[in-house]
Amino acid sequence: MSGVLSYLVFFLTTAAIYSIASLGLNLQWGRTGLFNIGVSGFFAVGAYAYAILTISPLTGQPGLGWPVLAGLLGAMVAAGLFALLVGIPTLRLRDDYLAIATIGIAITVQLIATNEPELTGGTNGLFAIPQPVAGWLHGSGGVAFLILVLICVALVYLALERMIHSPWGRVLVAIREDETAASSLGKSAFSFRLQSLVIGSMAMGLSGALYAAFIKFISPQDFLPIFTFQVWAMLILGGSGSSAGALLGSLVVWAIWTLSGGLIQAALPAKLQVDSGAIQIILIGLLLMLVILFRPSGLLGRKRPAVHRSTVPSKEQA
């Protein structure tokens, strides 16, 4: 396969993996107003859980050698458990306490990943992580895996959309809009928020697991806060509240990120290349500010009502 094509496959696979995390964030932030800035933490939990569950013990690493499907499910469960841990103490309090607690869990997860070599491989990380459908469509490069990831995106998208547009999702929006009013109408804000946090984090965990399976090697350096920033940028740019926006935003932001990275490498003197990250962050940050100021609803913002427009008897329509 040609270089350009295989690069395209690489690009799309990464963007698709990111988009699963931003779908999760859309449920949490876009629909429920939950302020999770520890996305990298839940992503890391998913990645490590998948790696630990699936790596063959024969590699001499901590691994259970489970089938990959069990690994993917296990990754989601693990991320969900961490979300419970953060959510229970903070979801009754003011919004930004959740933010602080989620970044706390992200940092703590990284500490554990770095300092528990028996479990996580420490700074050396874990390698030889099994990849589902490896070897299928022989010689196609990563196309088989890309297809698998896209199927996962579709499943997550459909599942979340179905929940968002159910009475459950309607309650989430009500709580986002006015917690006091929602509680006075019998909704337990805490319980619904916790559900949304856990489910969204499970999507992030799945995203992390697919990342681990894709790269086949993970170390603590893969889970820095910059990931959280990227996912937020994707959601805000795409249109907070809209699942389709989250998908589009992932593609656009990841394209900008990759292209600008390439351009900087090409244009800047070698000495400055060490940290092209700063310039990329300025670029995305600037874009974000413009979106927040001038188009707060993003590319595909929440123009639609919270639940599908329903058929009301025609005489009601003015």
């Binding site: 806060p225 400055l272 060490v274 940290d275 962050i281 300025i282 940050g285 500010m289």
Partner: peptide, 25 residues
């Protein structure tokens, strides 16, 4: 003056990343 009430917090998170990269630079 943004209508997104936590825009400031997200921005501070981005600013923190950026400043950290600048130090390295």
């Amino acid at each position: 003056r943004s209508s997104i009430q936590v825009a400031l917090v997200i921005a501070s998170f981005g600013a923190s990343l950026l400043l950290r990269h600048l130090v390295v630079l």
